[in-house]
């Protein structure tokens, strides 16, 4: 059975995952992301955060291009979908909407009924007995007293999932990905993505590199179990970009003192432009060819001088 794809929602400049099942699936793919959810009135430190999971741009590109996930389009897509729908489609939408409206009304009426019953029973018993008992008594007469609400509310409501078949197609996903690239650094992001998938192919788990001033930090296993090994910096242009001797000293000295390695990587054959991105053929992973052209150097303090 084919695994369900992960829905990636891009809101503003953040890519977010809202489903816990999706988060678990991503973990199996070695994509960890960063939990970012908290409550405005009870803000938490970052070890206590919950859903949604925020993804790095590189993770988004990796997931979409390898068909592990799909991008959920913004409202423009729905507007266009609406304008291109036939009258038949619109009628269906309307029917669905009515259905939901009616079920909601029914629920409201039921709630009201419960309240009234409670009120009446409470008066009869002069407030004796707990309300659960009262409800039970009532349920003998009203068969619909206990009304089960489907937990998977997404199934019954017309959400982004109901339209998945419309936008989870290669051409539309490619366009959405292009848009994502344009918002998130274009070809600069492309170079990072190559490095990202290269490291992933070497079985590293990758997290954002801010903690140590790099593009990424790489863990030899799940970040919950391991300390990171690498501080990774991406060199955009293999032939012209200066690594910077000061950066070598900075990176090397810092990394060595925190028991890591400062790693730089660049693409020998130059990075493709994001505009030329295509989905790889089935059963082939992303950038397989580009990865072979990736050259890395690891820098470390020598221990003398």
């Amino acid at each position: 059975m084919e695994e369900e794809k992960v829905a990636i929602t891009v809101i503003g400049d953040r890519a977010l995952i809202f489903s816990l099942d999706d988060v678990k699936r991503l973990r199996d793919l070695k994509v960890t992301g960063v939990l970012s959810g908290t409550l405005p009135i009870a803000t938490q430190q970052n070890i206590f955060l919950g859903l949604p999971l925020q993804l790095m741009s590189e993770e988004v590109v990796y997931l979409v291009l390898n068909r592990y996930g799909y991008l959920v389009p913004s409202k423009f897509f729905y507007n266009n979908l609406l304008s291109s729908s036939t009258d038949g489609d619109l009628e269906k939408f309307l029917e669905l909407k009515n259905e939901i409206f009616q079920s909601q009304t029914k629920q409201k009426e039921l709630d009201n009924l419960v309240k009234q019953k409670n009120l009446v029973n409470n008066n009869n018993n002069n407030g004796n007995g707990n309300s659960h008992l009262v409800l039970h008594k009532g349920s003998n007469n009203e068969s619909t007293f206990f009304y089960e609400i489907d937990n998977q509310s997404l199934k019954s409501y017309p959400s982004y999932k109901s339209f998945q078949k419309y936008y989870d197609k290669s051409d539309i996903q490619l366009k959405l990905l292009n848009e994502f690239f344009m918002k998130n650094g274009g070809d600069l992001l492309m170079a990072n993505c190559n490095m990202f998938s290269y490291l992933l192919s070497k079985n590293y788990y990758i997290a954002p590199g801010l903690k140590f001033g790099g593009n990424f930090i790489a863990y030899p296993g799940d970040p919950l179990n391991y300390h990171s090994h690498l501080i990774v910096n991406v060199i955009q242009d293999f032939y012209t970009d200066d690594i910077g001797l000061n950066r070598i000293v900075n990176g090397g000295r810092l990394a060595t003192s925190v028991k890591k390695i400062w790693t730089i990587g660049g693409n020998k054959n130059g990075n493709k432009s994001y505009k030329d991105l295509r989905f790889p053929p089935n059963n082939e992973t992303l950038h397989q060819q580009q990865q072979q052209d990736l050259v890395c150097f690891s820098i470390e303090w020598s221990g003398f001088g």
Binding site: A255, K259, C296, E300
Partner: peptide, 23 residues
């Protein structure tokens, strides 16, 4: 890499080929 500053300081840094594991 033996990096020489104009004040005579010289620092030495390993450049490994590829990715290595830290010590």
């Amino acid at each position: 890499a033996g990096m020489v500053n104009n004040d005579g300081t010289i620092v030495y840094y390993f450049i490994h080929d590829g990715i290595v594991r830290p010590r």
